[in-house]
Amino acid sequence: MMNTLLDVENLWVKFPSRHGIFDAVRGVSFTLGRERLGIVGESGSGKSMTGRAILRLIRKPGIVEADHIKLDGIDLQTKSEKEMRAVRGQRISMVMQDPKFSLNPVMTIGDQIIEAYRLHNAVSKGDAYRKSIEMLEAVSISSPERVMRAYPHEMSGGMGQRIMIAMMLIPNPEILIADEPTSALDVSVQRQVLDIMDKLVKERGMGLIFISHDLNLVADFCDRVLIMYAGRVVEVCDADKLHDAQHPYTRGLLNSLPRLDAPSKRLEVLQRDPEWSEAPSVSGRI
């Protein structure tokens, strides 16, 4: 079988509030190999929190607890903040939803990529420049020299997202966490960005955690899917079998989508069962 890159056991994210402690993520366990793992759920299901908790990016007063979060057998929880900084970026990278907020608006894209590259590798400016051009070519940017000179606001959403992915790939990470990377993009661009990510995962043997609210997209793109509801994983299945999912929540989500090939007067409305959020998380470990 595939070797495990990341092993998460019993992950909790808690936020203390005026009304007591709010559990955003409740006992999530999964492993990630060299595969594309999808995490789907609606807003508030804890899917983004799960991704951020792995990288210890939960802001105070949030608390992250887990039995272990092992990267190559080493528990990330035992690492100091300084060591975590080396993990973020070097070994696990993250792509956010909106590239506009992740790029510095007053630096050219070239300078930002070169800086990011030289932060991780002790090389000369010339080498870093050549490497950056290579990176941009890897994400199918046709005129990398022009893009290197441009500022972020001159880029379209799809281009910006490609640049973000290129930057995340510079340190050659083992794992890429993509949090709704294509939600802000048009469908045609969405497809191109996904193809790029797909190619990179296959060629470099990376593990990809793909966080999305879009069931069809995840079914199409990923190998394995965790379906989250109210902070728990309610179902784990192979992505190509997502449309035969068993859990009533997954079924309800699928049925509530309007379909061009099956017109109906009214859409099915998801009836939420309080038991779903009570039942313990399904483990996504292999």
Partner: peptide, 14 residues
């Protein structure tokens, strides 16, 4: 909106 909420709103509009 989320897909399940989308279904509710679309039904309401219908």
């Amino acid at each position: 909106l989320d897909v399940s909420v989308q279904a509710e709103i679309l039904n309401l509009l219908t």
